[in-house]
Amino acid sequence: MRSSDRRPEAKARIVPLLVAFFAPILLAWVLLEFWTAKAVPDSYALKRQRLEAQAEQVETLVTGSSRAYQGISPKQLPGFAFNLAGTSQSLDCDYRLMMMVLPSLPKIRRVIIEIQDTSFFYQIHDSFESWRQYYYEQEWGLTPLKLQDWLDVRMFSRVALRTPQFYRQTLPGAIRSFLRGTRFVPDPSLLDIDDRGWWSAVGKTPDLTPGGAAFALARHASFMKTAYESPNIAYLRKMLSALRQRGIDATLVTLPVSPDYSIGMNKEYWARTLADTKSIAAEYGVRYFCFLNVPELGTQDFFDTDHLNRQGAIHFTKLLRQALEHSLAPDESSCACCSR
């Protein structure tokens, strides 16, 4: 005989018991949703706020993944530049973000589009960083590409979206403010993005060994799929068409990686990327600069095997500026590392 058969009153008491247990959790969720999660901006919200605040001045826009996010310092570029790149930001996001912000940038005259070894072979929703797509939804209104992702609770809740690290950093301050009865003001240093959208990465000893490169390459290989090649190339074409229609200059650029990373890259995929990028650049009359291997950059310039640190980014952006200001004809689009 089961216990509930012996104690029929148990059934009656379980519902209030469950309500009593889960009510504080639900209350905490609601408080967090409106009290800290919305109050503390994330890098995506901050980037949007800063772009909107300076939209009137922006002349150059940078799109791409974390390599561009960390590796291109807008203040080193000519004119007023803004970095719209983001971690794991794939070409579909680049395209949709660019189309969203272009109308609000009256002075825009150049868009720098980062192309890397993974660019044509992944989309953010189908990677281990797929959770980031919900930041694009919540902060930029970019809806997920896959219909089933629309059912994810992170579409609607910032509490579900935010990382525990965020709560560890903000919750103590929020509770202190609550106890004092004061308004919670988040620590601005939590987000290391400058006013031009650049993340200057510092404070880490890079692992530039072959093992470190193999680790990064394996992570990337885990989400690279040939199925995305055609759609991503189509997104790139759409970006270039839209820019051409508006008379805005486009520049394609590949950022530096460590020697071990470049040696270990999927040769077939990279050859296809290079060939397609050059061909598209020629077709649309835009310049392509491939800085994959830059001898001027050393160990001290890298954050890890495929990202530049603060110093490296400044150094590299100066090189990029020189290339941009060099009067190359559009049909001379060249791969800097390959032509050297």
Binding site: S3, S4, D5, A10, R13, I14, L17
Partner: peptide, 12 residues
């Protein structure tokens, strides 16, 4: 066969 006899203790 006993799905119609839920057990609240087991639930907890």
């Amino acid at each position: 066969r006993e799905l119609d006899k839920p057990d609240s203790d087991e639930f907890i």
